[in-house]
């Protein structure tokens, strides 16, 4: 309710502003946005400073700043499982001065009844990178392969095995549900223990509080390299460079289920086409920079490029993939 009121008020102010600017616009018809950007651009990050989304936004921001010659300010609007920040992006004025680094949650909020946000609330700019999920157990777990683990889950009553990686309804929770479906089990077979993120989940794994983590192995890299955590599979179509010896779920079970945590540059819906095009071009340059590549390799991210309409199609397809799993996990609000 409040957000509607807000955007109405904002729209009113905007129109008032447009009215005031009308004489200037008459003098320069057709060149309305030619000068964009004339002032600093705010990049809203719906997640905390220091996290992966924040870091990727900062690296891209620096490159785009260099390219477009105006500061790109990173603004962390955290809380509410990303709802607050994503809403702030969607309800901003579509003038190119507020953009944001969105994450896959934008395809899920509406379905789960958490916010009136869908991919249509945004102008897609570009999906830049993703980090593939995985299935990991503690190094002192008796399961050496994914098959052993799956057989044990099949043999035990539902809820015996506890998994974690993120809060209820987060990406890695859905990964757990999708994996269960992929091996012919009901999505709720694993008991989900919510956590504040991958790092606390890996710690729970070490402390023996849970059995499985479905977050990305890259997020548990230090523990895996120290021999404390054993990654059994990657939930992506291909193996990842950081852990070349870890097989994919597809290799082991022939399943097409994949889940990655991705980040995409977006703007409020209704961004003028010329600004969209310039943002895409600049994001492309940033994505091709060495700094960006180094950063991705370091963090175990995979580079990807889908821009504009391609990204819009990807979002639709992604949402369709998630839908049955989210329903199977009982996360859809009636």
């Amino acid at each position: 309710m409040t957000s509607n009121f807000r955007s109405d008020r904002r729209r009113f102010l905007q129109q008032a502003g447009l009215a005031a600017a009308a004489p200037a616009a008459l003098l320069a018809p057709g060149l309305a946005h030619a000068a964009w950007p004339e002032r600093p651009v705010n990049v809203i990050v719906p997640w905390g400073a220091g996290g992966a989304t924040d870091a990727i936004a900062r690296v891209v921001g620096i490159e785009m700043e260099r390219d477009l010659g105006k500061p790109f300010n990173i603004v962390n609007r955290t809380g509410g499982g990303g709802v607050v920040g994503h809403t702030a992006i969607a309800s901003a004025a579509p003038d190119g001065y507020t953009i944001g680094m969105a994450t896959l949650e934008i395809t899920l909020y509406k379905l789960m009844g958490l916010a009136e946000l869908t991919p249509a609330s945004f102008t897609p700019i570009a999906r830049l990178g993703f980090v593939p999920g995985g299935i990991s157990v503690s190094a002192n777990s008796p399961y050496k392969t994914l098959q052993e683990l799956v057989n044990a889950i099949k043999a035990a009553p539902a809820g015996t095995f506890k998994a974690s990686g993120v809060g209820v309804g987060g990406s890695w929770h859905i990964n757990a549900g999708g994996w269960m479906r992929a091996v012919g089990l009901e999505p709720q077979r694993l008991r989900w223990v919510p956590s504040q993120g991958a790092a606390p989940a890996y710690q729970e794994l070490l402390s023996g509080g849970i059995d499985i983590v479905t977050a990305s192995p890259a997020e548990g890299r230090a523990l895996i390299e120290a021999g404390r955590v054993r990654p059994l599979a990657i939930t992506h179509s291909e193996r990842v460079a950081m852990f070349p010896s870890v097989p994919t779920l597809k290799e082991l079970y022939g399943s097409d289920w994949q889940m990655s945590s991705w980040m995409a540059l977006v703007a409020p819906a209704g961004l003028p086409r010329d600004i969209t095009a310039r943002l895409i071009a600049s994001a492309k340059k940033a994505q091709e920079s060495k700094a960006f590549s180094d950063f991705l390799t370091e963090r175990g991210f995979v580079k990807v490029w889908e821009a504009g309409d391609d990204l819009a199609r990807y979002l639709t397809q992604f949402a369709a993939q998630m839908d049955p799993v989210v329903r199977g996990l009982g996360l859809v609000k009636a």
Binding site: M1, T2, S3, T78, G79, G80, G81, V83, V84, T87, L114, A115, G167, V168, G169, G170, P194
Partner: peptide, 24 residues
Amino acid sequence: VGINNPAGQPRFTFGSTDLVGGID
């Protein structure tokens, strides 16, 4: 207040997006 609880459900938010994020 907010959605950052174990069940991931909004509590005491009264329909406000800001309150979904909890009280800072």
